[in-house]
Design a protein around this nucleic acid. Sequence first.
DNA 1: TTGAAAGCGCTAACAT
DNA 2: ATGTTAGCGCTTTCAA
Lengths: 332, 332
Amino acid sequence: MANTIYDLAKAAGVSIATVSRALNDHYAVSEETKQRIRALAEKMDYQPNARARSFARQKSGIVLFITDLFRNVAFVNPHMFEIMTGISQYLDEKNYSLLLKHATPKDAPQTIKELMIREQADGVIIHAAVLSKALAGTLHHLDVPHLVIGKPDFSTPICWMDVNHEQAGQKAAAYLLDKGYRRMAFLMGNRETDKISAARREGMLHLFAEEELSFTTLYGDGTYESGPRLCEEALSMKERPEVLLCTNNYLAMGCLQVIRQRGLSIPRDIAIMTFDNYPFSMLARPQLTAVEADMYDMGQEAARFILRKIRMPELQTQSFCTIPRVIEREST
Amino acid sequence: MANTIYDLAKAAGVSIATVSRALNDHYAVSEETKQRIRALAEKMDYQPNARARSFARQKSGIVLFITDLFRNVAFVNPHMFEIMTGISQYLDEKNYSLLLKHATPKDAPQTIKELMIREQADGVIIHAAVLSKALAGTLHHLDVPHLVIGKPDFSTPICWMDVNHEQAGQKAAAYLLDKGYRRMAFLMGNRETDKISAARREGMLHLFAEEELSFTTLYGDGTYESGPRLCEEALSMKERPEVLLCTNNYLAMGCLQVIRQRGLSIPRDIAIMTFDNYPFSMLARPQLTAVEADMYDMGQEAARFILRKIRMPELQTQSFCTIPRVIEREST
DNA sequence: TTGAAAGCGCTAACAT
DNA sequence: ATGTTAGCGCTTTCAA
């Protein structure tokens, strides 16, 4: 059994109250006593029991991160773990801990409700992978410090943050127009369900409209397999695009394959650009120009927000976005 | 403030002891009373306060996962997060939680010591990324339920688990020999530091020796950039290998590039095989035959072990390995 | 500046 | 089968 505050108090010849104050840097303890007690604590390898402390303080110093953790998720969605890494890093700095919990979209409301009523954690960050209207309702009712990562596609008063996808689209368009490209094709996923790409497209439309230009959008399913097909489609247009803008790396790789087969040179004959820096854009040959959002940074922002919300529950901010940037490489 | 056990006891007209027993399924409570109290708990949205409970029980129901969480780690090492996912999944089943904590190899011993003396968690799983002799010493002294993921490269009594890399090498060799390949080149990283590849090589040597065969090993630095160079080297050998076995996907991609340039056909002119299924082997064209270790499964095993160790600290098992498998694809 | 003592909400030993 | 009560190890109020 580890030393308790009583052991330390006895050894120091003071009361446990004084020990507690000394370790928590309370003003009403003489500097000399503080020093003495701290030195002794160090010597005795004393650390305050976390369970007793959180019980007494009525707070756990823990932030919950809830998401859908299925097999292969780390390969399918490393971005999520990069966000988590950012969160962990910031919490660490502030002496908070990160508790990771799995949920499915179906059971997430119940899971969160249980954990938060139990007061396992002081606040909760939820990945949009498990977001639903039911969950938004639960969050709203529980009135617990929370933040959803990913913009809800329905109207709700809950707090969320996301990458500004529209701005990402604008940045991509601005970059390409600036480079002198005029004929562009945008390759994305499903017309109805690929909301993220749709937001990017909005941003691009906006910028192209300013120049009184337009571009073609080709819809697929966002997979590697649909890449070659969409690429063929783009190459066989009467006015061949000067640049293909892909909504993800897999599409871009698919395009690369077709372009290579046709013996076309990149970027001379046709340029290519992609959203996301991961997982191939720097490894493809030629290396791909990409629009990247900093997930690590986003995680840190999320953590910063939730800690503020924990400290000041009346905080009014509801939502905010982070801004992506263009990484120029060889393909444009 | 949420309902406490006192509220529930009052509402049910029983003592808090009975409520506690009913909720913890104690034998000495009539089935009827249990039902009644549980129904009431449900109705009142009562959940026992996690902090009070862990304080009273003297255990937190938390397992710590400690690793080095640097920027881009999710892209560089998704395997680690896949392990984490497996851990989380298993802990969930057993009503345990996973606390994620960052450490560097330098501060890990101190971090772990602090957290475990504080009794934040009931046990700790440590990724080999932060393992050191100092850390092994700390673990040994603390005498706390622990498991290191990754085989220590020094002698120590601490508990660890790892993929059986030697067996992975054997499996790869067995597969290739079985396919009829006889001349093989193994492309790996640094001769001194790439321990994992060295273990694989041992396994391969073993199997080749049985057939009175041998193979060539080419050393590089394990990066994508070294791939083409090693590949050229292999192709220009007086007796050209029939198959290139790469220790990771990056090397394999580098090889693919050179082979394609030379207009060689895979697997007719030369076959290619790689360790790891990630990140490209299924996306490369042709798709690459690979030796894969199931990280998710390994995570589950790790969690199972740590929970057993928590329940039975005297458990003697020190180490164990998981077995990789070959995924056959088009490149061999 | 320090100490005594009352919680914090639960579990579990002991009593009935 | 149920109730009473003593902890669990800290923080914090109140008193000195």
